[in-house]
Amino acid sequence: MDKIRLGRTGLMVSACGFGALPIQRIPLKDAAYLLRKAYDHGINYFDTANAYSDSEEKIGAALADVRGKIVISTKSGGKDYKTVLEHIQLSLKRMKTDYIDLIQLHNPATLPDPDDPNGTYAACVEAKKRGYVRFIGITNHGRERGRTAVLSGRYDTLQFPLTCIAPQEDVDLACLAHERGMGFIAMKGMAGGLIAHAEAAFVFMKKYPFVVPIWGVQRESELDQFLELEKNPPRSEDWAAEIEKERRELSGNFCHGCGYCQPCAAGIEIQTAARMSLLLRRAPVPPLMSEKTNAMMMRIEECLHCDACKSRCPYGLDTPQLLADNLADYKSFRAGWLAAQAEGTKA
């Protein structure tokens, strides 16, 4: 598989990175199989986080014996020096390694003060001195914070959402990072699963050969799809119209499914419910009409209007209003669908 130089780190990582957030949702045996298959087929870059429940343990179980042949990045969302160091030490233990290639500060709401000896950036510097980590990066969903991080010159990499429906400003940020010698790691390449065709997402990423995409993988079919795309890349001109279609349909504010709004005090599955209108028109409908899904959507009526989800949204969405709009659309859609099913039964 082709390799991409991860900016000034000099790390040569596979053009197809393995996003290990989704493997927290599957059993250890299945996760280990996917991770090992990815490695056996040329993927050498695996991205995870301290917060992804048992994702790090699964990487350790599957890949500890080939540690010297892979690149691992993880993240800490710690708010202070002590917590970040504790997270790093825990990550080392979980992944059965004595070093982390890239430690990333995980989506901070404000950039750390580099001169604060008790701050999170200082903790990363100390971890590097101790040999726990090799390079320091940052992840973010805020464009201005991302730009400030790039211009600071203090980080080796930036991980940021980038998709084929991204505004030009996001592409410009990726280019700026590259110009400044930073590695640029693209997350959310499938817009949280809303982009209908992986081919469209793939050809877009290939337009920027310095961008390292990390594709979230939970199923073998997903892994196989990206491996096949790397092996037999589609022609960009064949997918230009599809990319434009995706941009039109997904323009404006929509929930990216990142989950930073959680937990919800009312138990609403926000990252699914807030995208329901799009899912109804971009995914198989029958599963979305189940009683289980209906019950999930009806939880929106129990919203406490505490606005905690709104305050946590890295995209600045009015999440409660988005939930209300999606519920109204869902009720209307479901009523029409059930009526059509009943009519079909009569016929």
Results as ranks from 00 to 15, higher is better:
residue 146 G to N: 10
residue 146 G to E: 11
residue 149 A to W: 01
residue 150 V to P: 02
residue 150 V to E: 01
residue 150 V to C: 11
residue 150 V to W: 01
residue 158 L to A: 03
residue 159 Q to A: 13
residue 160 F to Y: 15
residue 160 F to N: 10
residue 161 P to V: 11
residue 161 P to R: 04
residue 163 T to F: 06
residue 163 T to H: 12
residue 165 I to N: 14
residue 166 A to S: 15
residue 166 A to W: 08
residue 168 Q to G: 04
residue 168 Q to W: 05
residue 168 Q to R: 12
residue 169 E to K: 14
residue 170 D to I: 04
residue 170 D to S: 10
residue 170 D to Y: 13
residue 174 A to R: 01
residue 175 C to V: 14
residue 176 L to A: 06
residue 177 A to W: 05
residue 178 H to I: 00
residue 179 E to D: 15
residue 179 E to S: 11
residue 180 R to M: 15
residue 181 G to P: 12
residue 185 I to N: 04
residue 186 A to H: 04
residue 187 M to N: 10
residue 187 M to F: 07
residue 188 K to V: 08
residue 194 L to W: 01
residue 196 A to F: 01
residue 196 A to P: 00
residue 198 A to W: 04
residue 198 A to H: 08
residue 204 F to G: 04
residue 207 K to R: 15
residue 208 Y to F: 14
residue 211 V to K: 10
residue 211 V to G: 11
residue 212 V to P: 01
residue 212 V to Q: 14
residue 212 V to N: 03
residue 214 I to R: 03
residue 214 I to K: 02
residue 215 W to I: 14
residue 218 Q to W: 03
residue 219 R to S: 13
residue 220 E to D: 15
residue 223 L to T: 08
residue 223 L to Q: 13
residue 225 Q to G: 02
residue 226 F to D: 06
residue 231 K to S: 10
residue 231 K to R: 15
residue 232 N to L: 04
residue 232 N to E: 09
residue 232 N to A: 02
residue 236 S to G: 00
residue 237 E to Y: 05
residue 237 E to A: 11
residue 240 A to V: 12
residue 240 A to K: 15
residue 244 E to F: 00
residue 244 E to Q: 12
residue 245 K to N: 10
residue 246 E to P: 00
residue 246 E to M: 03
residue 247 R to L: 06
residue 250 L to N: 10
residue 250 L to W: 07
residue 253 N to C: 04
residue 254 F to T: 05
residue 254 F to L: 12
residue 255 C to G: 09
residue 256 H to V: 06
residue 257 G to E: 12
residue 257 G to R: 09
residue 259 G to S: 15
residue 259 G to L: 09
residue 261 C to Q: 13
residue 264 C to T: 05
residue 266 A to D: 12
residue 269 E to G: 08
residue 270 I to Q: 08
residue 270 I to S: 07
residue 271 Q to K: 11
residue 272 T to G: 06
residue 274 A to W: 12
residue 274 A to I: 13
residue 280 L to S: 11
residue 280 L to N: 08
residue 281 R to S: 11
residue 283 A to W: 12
residue 283 A to I: 01
residue 288 L to T: 07
residue 290 S to Q: 02
residue 291 E to K: 14
